[in-house]
Design a protein around this nucleic acid. Structure first.
Lengths: 138, 138
DNA sequence: TGTATTTCTCATGATAAAATGATAAATAGG
DNA sequence: CCTATTTATCATTTTATCATGAGAAATACA
């Protein structure tokens, strides 16, 4: 469902949420815990830092940490940079029609729209905190 | 959401449904209608034929046609060969954990399970006929 | 039997995603 | 100031997806 990259990003974000306020966490630490390629994860976290989602600190005792509390981070913010189509409204048509909309619907429009909206609101309403606390789905 | 290949397959299947019982339809015909690469579509349709979903006829007045009526074809059958992870239960975990299950759930398990089930039942319950007739979502 | 038509099959190329490796830049702490 | 540590950056490789092209195999029809 998620691209490999988005999946790594989300898993790392969950990890950082679990250790929120412990100070910066090293890429090496996260990468080995998650069994994910170190340099690749490094680039992913850097991208999230540029987005303002993470804070990065260089040098000894440096690393990455969440820039705001897990309760303030819907997972769509973690996923969007790497899987924009899944999270945003663009390319919403199951059949890939650019012009697809209520006015000019494709064959799947109404049926698919319902499901798609559920997926999108899942990403919008699920915060990192809810994941970490394993709050049941509403 | 769908891979390019699965999307082409689904669009072609919708096209074939609209012209069900008109006899074999040429790849060239479908490809130009859908504005999809001819040889690429050819391979996709061939794969669906090997799966038993389509019947292919070679030679003059040949082409592809649905092997059974559109009402008997859930779109998961069209998508599965090209996007197996989306449709089947395998790799159901949002965080990519192989062992993820009710007994050993990942952080997202319960919340994501609800949404995922909705997506899967959409693909299982939506037939080509429902798409072509544009029946409203239940 | 011959010819045009069409799928079948394989070889190749183009592009994007995923992963690796090496070096530069910053910084904490002795 | 020096050194170890850590992120930042860039170049490259690997792998998968998307796409093109050419010829082989089958078949309808004259």
């Amino acid at each position: 469902m998620l691209s490999q990259t988005a999946e790594y990003a989300l898993r790392a974000a969950v990890e950082l949420s679990e250790r929120y306020e412990e100070g910066p966490i090293r890429v090496d630490d996260i990468a080995s815990r998650l069994a994910v390629p170190r340099n690749y994860l490094s680039k992913i976290l850097h991208a999230l830092a540029k987005d303002g989602l993470l804070r990065s600190t260089r040098g000894p005792s440096g690393g990455f940490e969440l820039a705001r509390p897990p309760s303030k981070i819907p997972i769509e913010d973690v996923i969007r940079p790497f899987d924009p189509g899944l999270v945003s409204g663009a390319r919403a048509c199951l059949l890939g029609r650019k012009a697809c909309g209520d006015a000019d619907p494709c064959a799947a429009h109404s049926r698919w729209g319902v499901v798609r909206a559920q997926v999108q609101s899942f990403f919008a309403e699920t915060t990192l905190e809810k994941l970490v606390r394993r709050v049941a789905h509403v």
